[in-house]
Design a protein around this nucleic acid. Structure first.
Lengths: 350, 350
DNA sequence: CTGAAAGCGCTAACAT
DNA sequence: ATGTTAGCGCTTTCAG
């Protein structure tokens, strides 16, 4: 039987009301310091902890946030995003109730779980996904809701996604700075929320810096797996042996590209420069040389989401909705150098 | 203002007691079916959801599990383990309160957060870590506790960790089957909970199958990063050019080993066979050929942990403590073949 | 400055 | 078969 406020009050020789006031920090100036001290001592001695259920029942709300994840768990950075969210919540004295659904969970399941969270008296809900997927959301939800790495058509809901265009422009900038002008674009075919802006950045930069835009420089891998990246890179190198650099849609494709280069005896970055996207350190740090890439701001997004949600919850007036974008960090490793000056790159090994 | 049981009862023209009985499924045979039907209709019409706080206050417990993670979030498989735990909890009608601390969080923080979870009336707590770390745990905790991918000296607490020895033996078995007898062991130097049993498995198998055990076959990388794996593999190949296969402590080291092989023109698996450990698909699926390896049973461990914890919670009598080990799955890809029959492996490229 | 008392929404024991 | 009632532990008026 856990000790209750009543136990504390009795031991301190005061009423539960006084004990409540003091222990919740609202007793300042209302309870005599001598009594306050006795109450604190009693609580300490008894190992008093309080009962959240009783408190939220009484207050009709709880410092609790729901985290409804749509398939995030399967992604390797899931922990970083969730962990950052949880820590930030903790910093604001909130806790996190975590629910994991499949990425393609039917709307009805989402709704059901949103309502489950509401049973828990959560004061807000974060719906998290990945690749800033476009989500359909159930219409009815009482608690404020925020989308993490996802968007929806309803512009009245807060959301945060990576700024793909700006980040891609950042990595491409390293190629510009190194002086490349014949740059390949090794992409995935999805045309999804990530591929479109990254491709747009490539084309804009190509145009703005007078890069070669003749055919054959944009190649599309069957999927964004390394093995398809390998195949696509091989095609690119066959068609356009004159490329001096290749930007890859993501690190996995870049890894495939490395392998294609190794196989042809092309040395990175001496013979060809490569950049990626995602900063999957398992890959980007492991490759030799390390891959220059941009990170996806998972931690930042997780943290922003919680901060913003709590801000909305605690704000008296209605806040204008906000669609936030966050730019990942450029991570410079060793895969970019100036293009070779001699026109014919050497094609033999060693 | 959310609708309460009282609202439902009024609309159905019954008492709250009857409504409670019916909606919690305990009304079977105690409430007239006609009334039960009316209650369900009323609840439906009003969108009644119930209030967990009120229920757990009254019942003095909640179908809630605490998940206290010690640094798991930074690992790439974090999501898989947490997600599996959450889904399993859901299957048992439990929810998960998630707290993330640093891997090396001081005992006091752990204790503080354990107590925080208890304030929430959790009926059990999972303390999750990684690499089956040995943990120190605070002495006092009321709710049942279980260690996930971690152990402690107190053998009275349930725990689940991967069976490293058995899993390593599984991958090594593929080398035995392929007929290798000069097999290198590329390990990390930690001597930790993972390295020791894997090394033991290597030595036992080597002894039992008459493998070459002369010096130079065991090499230790500075860290378990791919770049150190590359360096260590290079050393191994220099010292023992006669190896026909190398088992790597993990996939990252194996990735480095691949690169060292590529650089020397050794073809996998024709010239040399390689196996890893972990099944980090980002690596193991991406390498060419795919890496034969064993998976760490993250999902299974997460799921087992929840199932076991709930079993303990709901069991009337005291269950004997259990230290579970789970063997990962062998994942056969293309990196193992029979050793070359000619004594001198060809050392030229292409 | 402090205590008494009401009541948050629900369940369970007890009446009827 | 159903209703009445008494709290679970806490916060918050409201008196004093």
């Amino acid at each position: 039987m856990a000790t209750t406020l009543k136990d504390v009050a009795r031991r301190a020789g005061v009423s539960v009301a006084s004990a409540s006031l003091v222990l919740s920090g609202k007793g300042e100036g209302r309870i005599a310091e001598s009594n306050a001290e006795r109450i604190r001592e009693a609580a300490e001695a008894l190992g008093y902890r309080g009962n959240r259920a009783a408190r939220s029942l009484r207050q009709r709300s709880a410092p609790l946030l729901g985290m409804l994840s749509l398939g995030v768990a399967t992604e390797p950075y899931a922990g970083a995003m969730l962990g950052a969210a949880q820590r930030t919540a903790r910093d604001h004295d909130h806790d996190l109730l975590y629910i994991e659904l499949e990425a393609e969970a039917p709307l009805q399941d989402v709704e059901e779980n949103l309502r489950l969270l509401e049973e828990h008296q959560v004061s807000g809900v974060i719906v998290a996904s990945y690749n800033h997927r476009r989500l359909r959301l159930p219409a009815l939800h009482t608690a404020p809701l925020l989308l993490l790495d996802a968007t929806t058509t309803d512009l009245s809901v807060d959301s945060v996604v990576p700024d793909e265009y700006a980040a891609e422009a950042k990595v491409l900038g390293t190629l510009v700075d190194a002086g490349h002008r014949v740059v390949g674009w090794l992409c995935e075919p999805s045309g999804g929320e990530a591929a479109l802006p990254r491709t747009a950045a490539y084309r804009d930069i190509a145009r703005d810096h007078g890069w070669d835009t003749s055919p054959g420089l944009e190649v599309y891998a069957a999927t964004s797996d390394a093995s398809d990246g390998y195949a696509a890179m091989a095609r690119l190198l066959d068609t356009r042996p004159d490329v001096t650099a290749v930007a890859c849609f993501n690190d996995r494709l870049a890894m495939g590209a490395y392998l294609a280069c190794f196989e042809r005896g092309l040395r990175i970055p001496d013979d060809i420069s490569l950049v990626g996207y995602d900063d999957q350190t398992l890959i980007s740090e492991a490759l030799r040389p390390g891959l220059t890439t941009v990170s996806l701001p998972h931690r930042e997004m997780g943290s922003w989401a919680v901060t913003r949600l709590i801000e909305r919850i605690e704000s008296a007036e209605a806040l204008a909705p906000r669609q936030e974008t966050i730019i990942g960090d450029l991570v410079v490793r060793g895969s970019v150098a100036a293009p070779r000056t001699n026109s014919r790159r050497r094609r033999t090994r060693r």
